[in-house]
């Protein structure tokens, strides 16, 4: 049986990669990629997407329902969750939350959709000092995120659970990804690591976890093609401390007290570069680690890149190597 797959968020890196890998699969009839903006002109749309048909749809509008109905879509991969504000926080929230509501509403009315895969983030667990060291999917965070990207993802997950209740016949998978890392990833965190001097919160050394983009794409591909209902954490094996990341990147830490760190974050936010919310400050203090055991058991497959390997690949691709710290150590 051939599938028609709808992929949202294809104008962003991971979305584009998922669309192209699905388009390369002969078992799939059609791949329809939608996004609010056309794929960025620097990327050669044709070769990147393969035979993906791009449809420009504002996810916040009900138009998406027409796309789903017209093409008899049976698999929906929802990746349109943005972490950086396009223009403002309210625009970002609308994009994330209203977009997901419209899409899920359309899926609920559709008679053809049989599988829905939603990209979420481990940020839904928050980061707090009184959290367990390692989150499993059943774990309740000590504090539910109440702002920014994490709150959006948390809200979206709520709608997905509602959808799964109303349409038990549709296989619904929610994937909580750790921070993406890799050659093509452009996120607040990757931008952070490419600066020459990195502000850190004085007195804290958070544990971080990354998932390589290749592994992320592979997980999404498998989820789109096979039935794996439920919620799954997706993270590379192992952890890196922020201090370790900085040393591996050969970058100098600039420890600042947390109020100053918050201020710097607000400045960066005003510059429109990142969405800086209290959750980001919490992450830079307390870190976050999740257990991907459920995913590994379910898929019988393990991410190829551990956290350290993913970070190394990112550093290599950006030409960041040990820097002067390594030179000093090697001397």
């Amino acid at each position: 049986m051939t599938h028609t797959v709808l992929v949202t968020g294809v104008s962003r890196h991971i979305g584009a990669r998922v669309a192209s890998v699905l388009a390369a699969d002969p078992g799939i009839g059609r791949v329809i990629g939608v996004d609010t903006v056309p794929p960025s002109p620097t990327r050669d749309g044709g070769s990147l997407f393969g035979r993906t048909e791009f449809v420009r749809v504002d996810l916040r509008s009900p138009d998406i329902a027409q796309v789903i109905a017209a093409a008899n879509v049976d698999v929906v991969v929802h990746m349109s969750l943005v972490s950086g504000p396009a223009r403002s926080r309210s625009a970002m929230k609308e994009h994330n939350v209203i977009g997901a509501m419209q899409l899920l509403g359309a899926c609920q009315r559709s008679a053809t959709v049989r599988r829905v895969v939603v990209r979420s983030t481990t940020a839904v667990y928050g980061s707090a000092p009184n959290d367990p060291a390692v989150f499993t999917e059943d774990g309740e965070p000590a504090e539910v995120p109440h702002s920014g990207y994490a709150k959006d993802a948390s809200d979206v997950e709520g709608y997905v659970r509602g959808f799964a209740r109303r349409r038990p016949d549709v296989v619904t998978s929610t994937l909580r990804f750790a921070n993406f890392m890799g050659p093509g990833v452009d996120s607040p965190l990757t931008r952070y690591f490419t600066q020459p001097v990195l502000p850190t919160v004085f007195g804290f050394d958070p544990r971080l976890q990354f998932v390589h983009e290749d592994d992320g794409v592979e997980v999404l591909r498998r989820m789109a093609l096979e039935d794996h209902p439920g919620t799954f954490n997706v993270a590379g094996d192992g952890v890196l401390l922020l201090s370790q990341c900085l040393r591996r990147a050969g970058r100098l830490p600039l420890p600042v007290p947390s109020p100053l760190f918050r201020f710097l974050g607000e400045v960066a936010r005003a510059g429109g570069r990142v969405d800086f919310s209290p959750e980001q400050l919490a992450l830079m203090c307390h870190g976050r680690v999740v257990d991907s055991g459920r995913l590994i058991r379910e898929l019988g497959w393990k991410p190829k890149f551990g956290t350290a390997a993913a970070f190394e690949d990112f550093l290599r691709s950006r030409g960041i190597s040990g820097g002067f710290l390594a030179t000093m150590a090697g001397a």
């Binding site: 060291a133 390692v134 050394d205 952890v239 900085l246 040393r247 050969g250 390594a326 150590a329």
Partner: peptide, 18 residues
């Protein structure tokens, strides 16, 4: 030892144990 520490080439476990 100093080289490993400066270049971050050491392992910590998921709880942050070094």
């Amino acid at each position: 030892f100093l080289r490993r520490r400066l270049t971050g080439e050491y392992e910590v476990d998921e709880f942050g144990f070094d």
